[in-house]
């Protein structure tokens, strides 16, 4: 089994993370921001499994399961929040969510 060099994984992970970060910062649609966050989480997951394989350790893979579980919970809560917001204001544009500003 010819090994794909770890640098490729890391490069892919960095690209995915960058796309996610830029998306999270630039999009105004809440769902889109959410998607971007998921992208960043999975970029991190990719790094973890790549290293786990490289180092022959299972720890990284175990952490990935945890991350996926947390991400699922987060998605559930987050989507519920957005639904609640949408019911009130008929939009999920985060720029309009400014009740708490001074």
């Amino acid at each position: 089994m010819s090994a794909v060099p770890i640098s490729w994984y890391l490069l892919l992970s960095a690209i995915l993370f960058g796309i996610g970060a830029i998306g999270a910062l630039t999009r105004r649609n809440g769902i889109a921001i959410f998607l971007s966050v998921e992208l960043m989480l999975n970029a991190a997951n990719l790094t973890l499994v790549a290293y786990a394989r490289q180092l022959g350790s299972h720890t990284g893979q175990v952490i990935v399961f945890f991350v996926m579980a947390v991400a699922a919970a987060e998605a559930a809560v987050g989507l519920a929040l957005f639904i609640a917001v949408f019911r009130q204001r008929h939009t999920i544009d985060v720029n309009r969510m400014n009740l708490m500003r001074w």
Binding site: A21, V94, M97, N98, W102
Partner: peptide, 17 residues
Amino acid sequence: GRFTTTGNVRNYALYFF
């Protein structure tokens, strides 16, 4: 200091980043 607290979620995300 209050000028940084815009109340805009995306600004906070930027600070975070």
